[in-house]
Computed example of a mutant assay.
Amino acid sequence: MSDISVRALGAEDWEQYRSMRLTALRESPEAFVAKLADEESEPEAFWRARMERSTRLLAERDGEALGIASVGEVGEDHEGHAQLFGLFVRPEARGTGVAAALVRAGARVATEQGRTQLYYWVGTDNGRAVAFASSFGFRPTGTRRPMRVVSEDDGEEEIAMTLPLSGDRGGMPDF
């Protein structure tokens, strides 16, 4: 088995991003706010504009697309910070290091952009996701928000976890 590679997609790669994004919405609809029916009907201009708003990362092995993630702005009140979002790994590639490769690449992209913190929103009831993020050095903040995806349990929350990208990282390895 060969290594996983992760690359940033450019605007010209919009069809590759669209294909993986629609796969994500088809395979894991519960994980996303967007709906497959809405996004699959969007025109090329929509996808090209989306490529410009954030850095889109594609994980591959031997030319086969295995996962995606995005790195973008947190918001006006978090200047110098970025957020990792839209993380998806094809079901058959889960547990093979694809998600870890995407998180490391996302941290590198944010660092190259001069960001000092990387945010990642995780469901407070999703112990596996919290443990995964913690393994990279993400730490929970006091910031919470209602889950943005439709869930069976009213009142579910997400917590912002943050990763320092510079300075003392508490012994955590580099990206």
Rank of each mutant, 00 (worst) to 15 (best):
E27W: 13
D62S: 10
S134Q: 02
K35P: 14
V98C: 11
S70E: 00
W121A: 04
E40H: 10
P29F: 06
K35M: 06
T96C: 12
P140W: 00
S134A: 06
G97T: 06
L22T: 03
N126M: 00
Y120F: 14
L25T: 03
V103R: 12
G63P: 15
G80S: 07
E76M: 15
A99E: 00
G137T: 00
E39I: 06
A129R: 00
V89P: 12
L25A: 05
P43R: 05
V122H: 09
A69V: 11
A129G: 15
D77L: 14
E73C: 11
K35E: 04
V71P: 11
Q117A: 06
T55S: 10
V122I: 06
A100R: 09
D77N: 09
S54E: 01
G123L: 02
R18F: 11
F138Y: 04
M51Y: 08
E40S: 12
R94T: 05
R90E: 07
R53L: 15
V33L: 11
A105G: 08
E52F: 15
T55W: 05
A110E: 01
F136R: 09
D38E: 12
H78C: 12
F138H: 04
G142Y: 02
R61N: 15
E76S: 14
D38G: 14
G67Y: 14
R108S: 07
W47K: 09
A93N: 06
I68H: 15
G86Q: 06
H81N: 03
R50T: 04
R26W: 04
R50L: 11
F46Q: 02
R48W: 12
R115Q: 00
G95H: 01
R144T: 08
P140R: 02
V130E: 00
L66D: 03
I68L: 08
R144N: 02
D125P: 09
Q113W: 05
T23R: 05
S54G: 08
H81E: 00
E73G: 10
G63E: 02
E15A: 09
S28I: 01
